[in-house]
Design a protein around this nucleic acid. Structure first.
Length: 185
DNA sequence: CAATAGATCATCT
DNA sequence: GATGATCTATTGC
């Protein structure tokens, strides 16, 4: 299935729409339970804010592609390009509830991690799914590494301030499935 | 349990 | 040369 509902949506709306969707990478499958929106225009917390460069060009690119970047020198973070026509923005995937491939994910992280903690954080989920900078620009609409949107939206969705940023803290652009055990922080 | 330090590098100034 | 959308281990109460 393509990701039509990610197109032509403002980035925060796309972030909400991604809750309940499945991320699939080979044998690893999980449900997205926490996201954050980053808009290129008017969002000072965004990497691409007023700064178009080789790295941030993808913010204005085709929706449904992956933007993977290295944070603090050692953690990969996975984003999905999603924005209205002519604008730029991405959705950061912050937490995933694993359904399949839990044992494989455990070998990539700590063996004694509880299942709900294996992918409960932006860098943890890339570890669990084996995502690295090599996947930057990948098309997530089909293939071995892809996203399948939820047929029905999840139950309760909460929103609040984004985590770990120092600018534009007022924006309530973090979305999560209320009460889910796999959400971060 | 809460607070803090350190690891470590692509990107931009 | 500074910065940062994090995580983990360790310290201190």
């Amino acid at each position: 299935m393509p990701l039509p509902s990610l197109f032509n949506l403002p980035t925060p709306a796309a972030a909400r729409a991604l809750l309940g969707a499945r991320l699939i990478h080979g044998a690893i499958v999980g449900t997205i339970v926490e996201t954050e929106a980053y808009a290129a225009e008017g969002d000072r917390a965004c990497h691409a804010c007023l700064r178009r460069s080789a790295r941030t060009e993808i913010f204005w690119g085709e929706c449904g592609r992956a933007y993977v970047y290295l944070c603090y020198g050692l953690h990969w973070c996975l984003n999905v390009v999603a924005h209205e026509p002519g604008k730029g923005g991405v959705v950061l995937l912050r937490a995933i509830s694993l359904e399949k491939g839990i044992e494989v994910a455990r070998t990539r992280r700590r063996r004694d991690d509880p299942a709900e903690r294996l992918a409960s954080g932006p860098a943890r989920l890339t570890q669990a799914f084996g995502v690295t900078g090599a996947m930057n620009g990948a098309n997530l609409q089909h293939g071995n590494f892809r996203i399948e949107l939820a047929k029905r939206p999840p139950g309760r969705v909460a929103c609040g301030s984004r985590v770990g940023i120092t600018k534009a803290v007022r924006k309530k652009w973090r979305f999560w499935v209320e009460g889910h055990p796999a959400i971060s922080r």
